[in-house]
Computed example of a mutant assay.
Amino acid sequence: MTRSSGRHVLFLSWRDLRHPEGGGSELYLERVAAELITQGHRVTLFCQAYAGASKVETRPDGLRIVRRGGRHTVYLFAALLYLAGALGFGPLDRRAPGRPDVIVDVCNGMPFLSRCYARCRVIALVHHVHREQWSCVFGPTMARLGWWIESRLAIRVYRRCPYVAVSESTRRELIELGVDPERITVVYNGTPPVDGAPVARTAHPSLVVLGRLVPHKRVELALRATALLAVELPGLELVVAGQGWWDAPLRRLAADLGIEDRVRFAGFVSESDKHELLSRSWLSLVPSLKEGWGLTIVEAGVRGTPSIAFRSAGGVVEAVVDGRTGTLVDDEFEFFRSVRALLLDQEARDRMGKAAVRHAERFTWPAAGAAFAGVVTGRGPATTPHLANQRVP
């Protein structure tokens, strides 16, 4: 696609990847944006401002980022600035490339409702439905309001818009809420290729949890499993890599469980440190209540590290091929038993790790970008192959 034929795509997202609470959703957005740019599209990301970040930034790959508002006001700023032309698409910014041809409204529970004011094509991007998370984070009143906005109001507002879901699980949940199946395209996450020399596993049993430290990630389950297994496996270590506002309660729980010497809170880790952790660890634990996909699962898979996750947690059922690349469980007791069983069975870990590498290789960012571009241009398929139950060779 030549640059002259490319669209101007505006992503509306409450965060960008460099935000202190940025995670898998933001990584997906920026990697897809990068792929769109390589295909000749122009891409702008609008998101909330935060300390230390510039209001307008243009990345080396061409991605233009505009930051305004805060955690909640970013939604209002998006509407007002779009209508006023001050987002960089009108007379208030002469350097701007023109109004967008397509808006991608990233619906992380709370949508931007851009269909109400935008005069261009709008695509709703949904990582997962937040049915369980609302009550996990908010009180009863706010939880009911948030769920009504997500499950009723947003479905009504975007009723004629195309949707992108990041997993077949999310697609099914959207259909249950009333979205027309023909309007939903599944575009899976990609997986970065292995980079750097191999890193040996730790000599001692080791576990890793990777992700934002928020209640619905349920890192507590990994801490409690570590406490129970520490008696049987005195060398056991758990690394919790990530940052978030739930950090202090998790540290207090580790102290209450008497496992401060067995748990390392690594905080934010760089890409190279992350992949070293995934390479060195015996198992990756994903106790999250809900995930749209499970990016850390396939990232661990690239490094030959099996994962244990919950069957009810949405897209993880596609990221993990149960019994082959890792294990899916139904409750905390089964989670503990599966962690113990795999820590004590090197042959099973090795077999699953090799299968996890093959499974992860199926997902690439160029493929994701090509599929997303098909939705942007209106030429993409309404469905993509369901990979979860395909046989891993």
Results as ranks from 00 to 15, higher is better:
residue 180 D to E: 06
residue 278 L to P: 08
residue 186 V to F: 08
residue 368 A to D: 07
residue 200 A to L: 02
residue 169 S to F: 11
residue 385 P to L: 03
residue 238 L to D: 07
residue 307 S to N: 01
residue 146 G to V: 14
residue 163 Y to E: 08
residue 242 G to R: 02
residue 139 G to A: 06
residue 393 P to Q: 07
residue 128 H to G: 01
residue 352 M to Y: 05
residue 51 A to I: 04
residue 165 A to H: 10
residue 181 P to T: 07
residue 46 F to S: 03
residue 11 F to A: 03
residue 180 D to F: 03
residue 118 A to F: 05
residue 6 G to N: 13
residue 249 P to T: 09
residue 185 T to L: 13
residue 72 H to I: 11
residue 8 H to P: 13
residue 151 S to I: 01
residue 218 R to T: 13
residue 123 I to A: 08
residue 128 H to E: 06
residue 68 R to M: 02
residue 294 G to F: 05
residue 94 R to C: 14
residue 290 K to F: 11
residue 321 V to H: 15
residue 319 A to W: 04
residue 261 D to H: 10
residue 308 I to S: 07
residue 387 L to V: 10
residue 289 L to S: 12
residue 94 R to D: 03
residue 268 F to S: 07
residue 211 G to Q: 12
residue 89 F to G: 11
residue 201 R to A: 02
residue 341 A to L: 01
residue 4 S to L: 00
residue 364 T to P: 08
residue 212 R to D: 13
residue 174 L to T: 02
residue 376 V to K: 02
residue 290 K to N: 14
residue 270 S to L: 06
residue 25 S to I: 14
residue 183 R to N: 10
residue 329 V to C: 12
residue 384 T to K: 07
residue 362 R to T: 10
residue 43 V to S: 13
residue 345 D to H: 00
residue 378 G to T: 00
residue 202 T to Q: 13
residue 63 L to C: 09
residue 334 E to K: 01
residue 287 P to C: 10
residue 370 A to M: 06
residue 354 K to D: 00
residue 325 T to C: 01
residue 175 I to C: 01
residue 93 D to P: 12
residue 21 E to H: 06
residue 110 M to N: 09
residue 305 T to Q: 04
residue 268 F to D: 14
